[in-house]
């Protein structure tokens, strides 16, 4: 393996990514997954997003919330399309959760069943690792774009002339949500390389995110000098991202980008060395 090509071949990367997309979206399992996603967002759109948009479109309600939050929600309240504002708040937390579910089995089952051995005869370990990651990244981007499109449609049903403003907001929201989901994708890539099953990958993700976050909170509370550790766990920047607007939604991308790079480097190295 010492002579293996470090730089993946683009054609192989793309083929592997395409196959991952087909795996996620086709067949009975894929269609059920897609159906569940659509159903969840339909319920969210009709109830929290649809209802909240009605309230947020009333000036009196906005003034009341501004007073209640002491100005801490000024940015989010000033979004031109209230449906997009509500979508933003929900999506910040829900899409990372969907990544944990959807990408938990990037490598685990195929590694245990020996399926990866068929691929290893035709593609390098780097191509398999980065190709599958690319496929999952494209999948998450498509799902986010689909949810944004549905939200914009909902907004247009309420008020027909919201499309232009909504698209402008979507221009920033889409990349921000994709980058926000990236550390979770990287974490699941790493865990599915290490764990024997998708179930164990999800369990360990929960332990790392919840228990790890709790431990770090306790440590930083007692030792403020360790406050930098709050940026170790994916999601540390989420609450700060809520009250942003326009290009400002991309103002906190540095932390998730660094987290992603570190997690992906660890995953790639382990996958390079692991017995498959």
């Amino acid at each position: 393996m010492t002579n293996q090509t470090i730089i993946p071949r683009p054609a192989s990367l793309w083929l592997i990514a395409q196959f991952e997309l087909r795996k996620a979206l086709s067949g009975t399992r894929g269609l059920i997954g897609l159906g569940a996603f659509i159903l969840c967002w339909l319920v969210l759109l009709i109830y929290p997003i649809g209802s909240a948009a009605n309230w947020l479109s009333q000036p009196g309600f906005i003034d009341m919330v501004r007073a209640f939050t002491e100005g801490q929600a000024n940015e989010i309240l000033s979004w031109k399309v209230p449906e997009m504002a509500m979508f933003w708040v929900l999506a910040l937390y829900l899409f990372p959760l969907s990544v944990l579910m959807v990408s938990a089995d990037m490598f685990a089952t195929d590694r245990q069943q020996g399926t990866l051995r068929f691929l290893l005869q035709r593609a390098s370990r780097h191509e398999i690792f980065w190709g599958r990651l690319l496929g999952h990244l494209i999948l998450q981007t498509l799902l986010i774009a689909l949810a944004i499109a549905a939200t914009l449609l909902m907004a247009m049903l309420r008020q027909a002339d919201t499309l232009a403003a909504g698209l402008q907001q979507a221009l920033w929201v889409l990349p921000a949500l994709v980058i926000n989901a990236l550390p979770y994708l990287a974490l699941m890539a790493l865990l599915s390389v290490v764990c024997r099953s998708s179930r164990m990958s999800i369990l360990w993700a929960i332990i790392i995110l919840l228990l790890g976050g709790l431990v770090i909170q306790l440590l930083t509370y007692n030792l403020p000098i360790l406050s930098f550790m709050t940026d170790i766990i994916p999601g540390s920047q989420l609450s700060a991202m809520i009250n942003t607007k326009g290009a400002g939604v991309l103002g906190h991308i540095l932390i998730p980008v660094i987290q992603s790079l570190l997690l992906l480097a660890a995953g790639a190295i382990i996958f390079w060395r692991k017995r498959l």
């Binding site: 393996m1 002579n3 067949g27 399992r29 020996g114 399926t115 051995r117 005869q121 035709r122 390098s124």
Partner: peptide, 23 residues
């Protein structure tokens, strides 16, 4: 060296107990 990209298409194998993708 084993695993080298140069071997793709030149070396093939029937791995013991390996399963194809069920989907």
């Amino acid at each position: 060296a084993p695993g080298s990209a140069a071997l793709a298409g030149r070396l093939a194998a029937l791995p013991q107990d390996a399963k194809l993708d069920a989907r």
